[in-house]
Design a protein around this nucleic acid. Structure first.
Length: 571
RNA sequence: CGGGGUGUAGCGCAGCUUGGUAGCGCACGUGGUUUGGGACCAUGGGGUCGGGAGUUCGAAUCUCUUCACCCCGACCA
């Protein structure tokens, strides 16, 4: 490839709307171009990286017995009606009609498609287990896109579906896939990716892991215990709340004008946040019930846990409500019809607490949970705080951000049952297979690599996924130098190396900056002064190597580096 | 959907308060001088000032309305 011919402009300044590093570099480097909310076109460098990542994934999927298929993006409604997801999935599912008025949808995941694909002909136990996978465009009408390729509406996903005759067999395969995922992420250059126990969300099923790249640009919070090396999504993480151990006191109502927030109460009464009973108000979807959660002042409500407790989708309520005095809600004497009250376990057994008095400008001190709230049921709806105790080993949790680049689910029979997939077992009995599914966001993986493999000037692509292997800079100079560079370029191409040459008549600074943005691992620089002495410069993007080499030896030297690199990859 | 913000050339921005010929830097075309970390001189092309309506002799600027996008919250690869 000649750089003079490459489509996609490299930008000197960062686009205003770009916020995170991978987004900035991918836009500035001419990898992607913004089209509309949550959708980007990809240019050649990005497409080449994408193809390489896909190939690595393909190899690893094939190694664990996967077979590649391709299902349609547009599916008929009937298929999703079989599982009920046409109705149950929210607005992120893009529904549309064809010319005949028939309901169609843009598949955002392919469990239905996969079951449909195999249910008619896999009818004997002898055909199990098997796994099929595809690389396919997914469209999810996200409420909010962000971060360039991190969160978009249209993206390529590798999605895989495995089918088994027993839960045990599924679990064994799940573990294989788990290991394959670690290999994939190591090979594409984000070995920092960890498997995190997670919530199953709309996919259903019991066991699930998210593969999270730990980095600050991540959108998820991971609860990490360094002592036992465990990782949990904060959505599911649990802890044992350390009790205050206060003394029981008599209750007293106190006039507290304009004291509403936890910080204000803490300052007014001179107590710790943990000595306050906080209330959080939510609305439940599909009902007019208000959900009020009482929780210790030093904890936040974990909405995922709360959803499970009240078995409904919720959203936070702020501001005013007709029958509630926000800022003064407390568990004592709360008279409310049509409300669900939830008490978090952080309150269990606490004494001498401050709570709202359920009337404006009043709080109550000396609230003792066991004495004053006898008989209430406690649920765990608290979000783990940094420094909390790890239940597995007694160690201390720290919180880190992570990008979810992949996930794996044990789905069980949710889809096979509803879609009436069955087979005959050894005894001629009709059985329902169990299923697992396994996803990786390819574009998100590209962005993830940039997040952790870059310097101030641009991405530093790992060799295995780099858009090209060698970048030749032909600086201004004589005709002989140009010929030498072109000769090298052609020889490398002819021998199967992936090479891009900057043949533009621009200043060295421009060439070097563009080369940094393209992030190609090996670079050969032809400059006039070195060339006069019969030399060219060989460097690496990561600055590991910087050598002057006789022009005639450049081919031998650079290909030697690459050969040893390739040897390292195959290990 | 709730809260905040921004829309002016491909990118980054000024102009708006106080209405009066649409500007700057980068990028792009041409000519020349340069040439190892984003060179310089000269010259040129590129705009429904997000859209619509209104006020006005006159609107990028004021009013109303609408759309798009960005940021903070609820969803996910």
């Amino acid at each position: 490839m000649l750089l003079s011919n490459l489509l996609g402009e490299r930008l000197r300044e960062k686009p205003t709307d770009a916020k995170i590093l991978s987004q900035i570099f991918l836009l500035r480097g001419g990898y992607i171009k913004y089209v509309s909310n949550g959708s980007y076109s990809m240019l050649l460098p990005c497409v080449r990286i994408k193809a390489k990542i896909e190939n690595i994934i393909r190899e690893e999927m094939n190694k664990i017995g996967g077979q590649e298929v391709l299902m349609p993006v547009v599916l008929p409604r009937e298929l999703w009606d079989e599982t009920g997801r046409y109705e149950s999935v929210g607005a992120e599912l893009l529904r549309l009609k064809d010319r005949g008025g028939k309901d169609m949808l843009l598949a955002m995941t392919h469990e239905e498609g996969a079951v449909h694909l195999v249910r008619d002909d896999v009818t004997s136990y002898g055909r199990f287990p098997f796994m099929l996978y595809q690389f396919q465009t997914k469209f999810r009408d996200e409420p909010r896109c962000k971060g360039g390729l991190i969160r978009v509406r249209e993206f390529t996903m590798k999605d895989a579906y495995s089918f088994h005759t027993s839960q045990k067999d599924l679990e064994e395969y799940y573990n294989k896939c788990y290991a394959a995922y670690h290999d994939i992420f190591r090979r594409i250059g984000i070995s920092e990716t960890v498997a995190v126990a997670s919530d199953t969300g709309m996919m259903g099923g019991k066991v699930a892991h998210e593969f999270m790249l730990l980095c600050d640009a991540g959108e998820d919070t991971i609860c990490v215990c360094k002592d036992c090396n465990s990782y949990e999504n904060i959505e599911v993480a649990k802890t044992e709340v350390k009790k205050n151990g206060g003394q029981e006191r008599a209750r007293a109502e106190e006039y507290t004008p304009d004291i509403e927030t936890i910080d204000q109460i803490s300052a007014h009464f001179g107590v710790k946040k943990s000595e306050i009973i906080k209330s959080a108000v939510f609305a439940a979807e599909g009902s007019d019930k208000t959900v009020i959660v009482f929780i210790r002042g030093d904890y936040e409500v974990n909405e995922t846990k709360l959803k499970k407790v009240i078995k409904a989708n919720i959203f936070p309520l702020e501001g005013k409500s007709a029958d509630l005095e926000f800022g003064y809600i407390g568990p004592l004497g709360l008279k409310l019809e049509n409300a669900v009250l939830v008490y978090d376990r952080s309150l269990e057994g606490e004494k001498n607490m401050i709570a709202g008095a359920n009337k404006k400008n009043y709080h109550i001190s000396g609230v003792s949970v066991e004495r004053d709230l006898a008989g209430v049921v406690f649920d765990d709806v608290a979000k783990v705080n940094e420094g909390d105790k790890c239940l597995k080993c007694g160690g201390t949790y720290i919180l880190q951000k992570g990008i979810e680049v992949g996930n794996i689910f044990q789905l069980g029979k949710k889809y096979t049952e509803s879609m009436k997939m069955s087979y005959l077992d050894e005894n001629g009995q009709s059985k329902t297979p169990v299923m697992g599914c396994y996803g990786i966001g390819v574009g998100r993986a590209i962005a993830s690599v940039v997040e952790v493999r870059h310097d101030d000037f641009g991405p530093i692509w790992p060799y295995a996924i780099a858009p090209w292997h060698i970048h030749i800079n032909l600086l201004s100079g004589g005709e002989n130098m140009r010929k030498a560079a072109v000769t090298l370029y052609n020889k490398l191409l002819k021998n199967g190396y992936e090479v891009i040459m900057d043949d533009r008549k621009v200043s060295a600074g421009v060439q070097f900056n563009d080369a940094d943005l393209l992030g190609v691992p090996y670079r050969v620089i032809f400059g006039a002064k070195n060339f006069e002495n019969g030399l060219a410069e060989l460097t690496t993007r990561d600055k590991r190597i910087k050598r002057l080499i006789p022009v005639n030896d450049v081919y031998k030297e650079v290909t030697a580096y690459i050969k040893s690199e390739v040897k390292g990859l195959s290990k």
